[in-house]
């Protein structure tokens, strides 16, 4: 039992938090710009490298240097939106999907060019876990990840329901034409969508890098579960995407627990497949997701 908590449940929450933070951005972009952002994983990668570079230069714990990763991710997304996505907005959105597919490659090759293809760690050496009640062993990172996701979930909820900008974002996501007729500044809403999405992606990327290590494929490898999470949560429903991310993270990690017999239920090498099958099942049975999002 305690083994289940230590080795499966707590890591599952961390993975879920990473997916959730990425999926929120994907879901918001889905809702407001109406396309599947294939470069979102690579925005996470850039965020992770931004933080890493700061760690090299400034002797502070990585999580305190997150603003550097966030800044890099924001600059990168605003730049590609301006240069590559915006000129395609008049066309069918599938062209923007293709463009973002290419942007994924651009981000990844830039990461390889500037930081190399090797694996990097933020802090060398093994971190000792904290022990509670003599039995529960949790690494500091896992506690931090859970705290971060709680704080962000609450902030996001208040932002979306109480602030003008948050309500405008929901309005644009709901009925873009009516939002324009109501005089909302759609461009500003789009800009903030990128800023928020990129910030959360950078946090997710840094957490993922802390959890394992930083490498150019870091984010791309997480893209599929994040898509699954945003569909699960219902497209255009950021809070749903948060929940969806947690569910996918839990499902992936817990699928490796020996529920039946001695071996893992699903071999750990097929963890990503779990997300895929959840996604396929959703597309077949409930494409609007669990929280009644809409269809693209």
């Amino acid at each position: 039992m305690i083994e289940f908590v230590n080795f499966y449940l707590i890591p599952a929450f961390t993975l879920g938090a990473i997916y959730a933070l990425g999926a929120v951005g994907i879901s918001m972009i889905f809702g407001i710009l109406r396309f599947a952002h294939f470069a979102h994983g690579d925005v996470m990668t850039l965020g992770a490298y931004g933080t890493l570079t700061a760690v090299w230069l400034i002797p502070l714990p990585p999580l305190l240097l997150l603003p550097f990763g966030i800044a890099l991710a924001i600059v990168a997304t605003l730049a590609v939106d301006r240069m590559f996505y915006r000129p395609l907005r008049k066309l069918a959105t599938i062209y923007t999907v293709i463009s973002s597919f290419g942007v994924a490659l651009i981000f990844r090759s830039l990461a390889q060019l500037f930081w190399g293809a090797q694996n990097e760690v933020y802090v060398p050496g093994v971190q000792r876990p904290l022990v509670f009640f003599d039995t529960i062993r949790v690494s500091a990172l896992h506690i931090e990840a859970i705290l971060i996701i709680i704080v962000i979930a609450l902030t996001l909820h208040v932002f979306l329901t109480r602030s003008r900008l948050g309500r405008s974002m929901r309005a644009v996501s709901d009925e873009p034409e009516l939002a324009a007729v109501s005089g909302l500044d759609t461009d500003r809403v789009i800009r903030w969508t990128w800023i928020i999405g990129a910030s959360l992606a950078a946090i997710a990327g840094t957490l993922a890098g802390l959890d394992t290590d930083v490498h150019p494929n870091l984010g791309w490898n997480l893209l599929l579960p994040m898509f699954a999470a945003s569909i699960l949560g219902g497209i255009g429903k950021p809070m749903g995407a948060l929940a969806g991310g947690m569910v996918i993270g839990l499902a992936e990690e817990l699928s490796a627990y020996p529920w039946l017999g001695d071996g893992p239920l699903i071999s750990p090498s097929y963890k990503t497949a779990v997300a895929f099958f959840i996604m396929v099942a959703l597309l077949i049975f409930k494409p609007q997701g669990l929280f009644k999002g809409r269809l693209l």
Binding site: T161, R167, S168, R170, S182, G183, L184, D185
Partner: peptide, 9 residues
């Protein structure tokens, strides 16, 4: 919220 959005512009 619908009414509120009407005031933003």
């Amino acid at each position: 919220e619908n009414l509120d959005v009407g005031t933003y512009a």
